[in-house]
Simulated scan of single mutants.
Amino acid sequence: MKLPKGFLFDFDGVVVNSFQSHHNAWASAFKKLFNKEIPPFPKEMAGKSPMKIANYYCSTIGKEVETEALYLLKDEHLDTYFTVPKLLPGVREFTTYLSKNNIPYGIASNATKQFLKNSVHHLALNFTTVFGVQDYEKPKPHPEAYMTLAKALGFTQSDFAHLWVFEDSLTGTKAAKDAGMIPIGILTQYSEAELKAAGSHLVFSTLLEAYQFLNLQ
């Protein structure tokens, strides 16, 4: 099959399993700010911007006015008590192939820049073009994140229909679809049916499976 012109990657749930890293930071920040244990994280919040997640947690105890304070404290804890996320299968194989063949690729995430920078450094990942939530006026599900990344990689609007976007959340899938790109689902938290209903053209268990499907070995 003909390869896409470029590959755009979400980070959490696609490149790494970072649930514990984020949960630890949310939990410690929530405990420090409110002296309460944090409630469980609902799946429907996956992929949302950190500010929206902070607002959700605050709303569970009627403290929405503290949303920004929780957001800032969580970001501080995420950096101070940084937990290296777990690398998911296929990432190194995929990025090594793309680099060797001069196929543009990069990350556009709703995670914060510092977390992405720390993770890329500690895992020695081969990503040089990385965008985080502070880089957009409107985070996912708005398409700005992927449009920003695509343009930074040298693509024009006419190229967008030839770009694959790997996403594990419905939020990010909508962002890719609305950007006019090709969403490809990764089965981290949603089912194949849910991802396809949101707009994913294909669905894979991991990036390794997608890599093998493209016969890049």
Rank of each mutant, 00 (worst) to 15 (best):
E44Q: 13
M45G: 07
A46W: 12
G47F: 08
P50E: 09
Y56V: 14
Y56L: 15
T67E: 13
E68H: 14
E68A: 04
Y71V: 02
L72P: 15
K74Q: 01
E76T: 09
H77V: 05
H77R: 12
H77C: 09
F82Y: 07
F82E: 01
K86M: 08
L87A: 06
G90N: 05
G90T: 10
V91T: 13
F94Q: 00
F94N: 00
T95N: 00
Y97N: 03
Y97F: 07
L98R: 00
K100S: 01
N101T: 01
G106N: 08
A108M: 15
T112I: 15
T112R: 08
K113W: 10
N118I: 00
N118L: 11
H122P: 03
L125W: 03
F127H: 03
T128D: 02
F131N: 11
D135E: 08
D135Q: 15
K138F: 04
P141N: 14
H142D: 14
E144S: 09
A145C: 11
L153G: 14
G154A: 14
F155I: 04
S158E: 12
L163G: 00
W164Y: 10
V165Y: 00
V165C: 03
F166S: 03
F166K: 06
S169K: 01
K174I: 11
A175Y: 04
M181I: 13
I182S: 00
T188G: 05
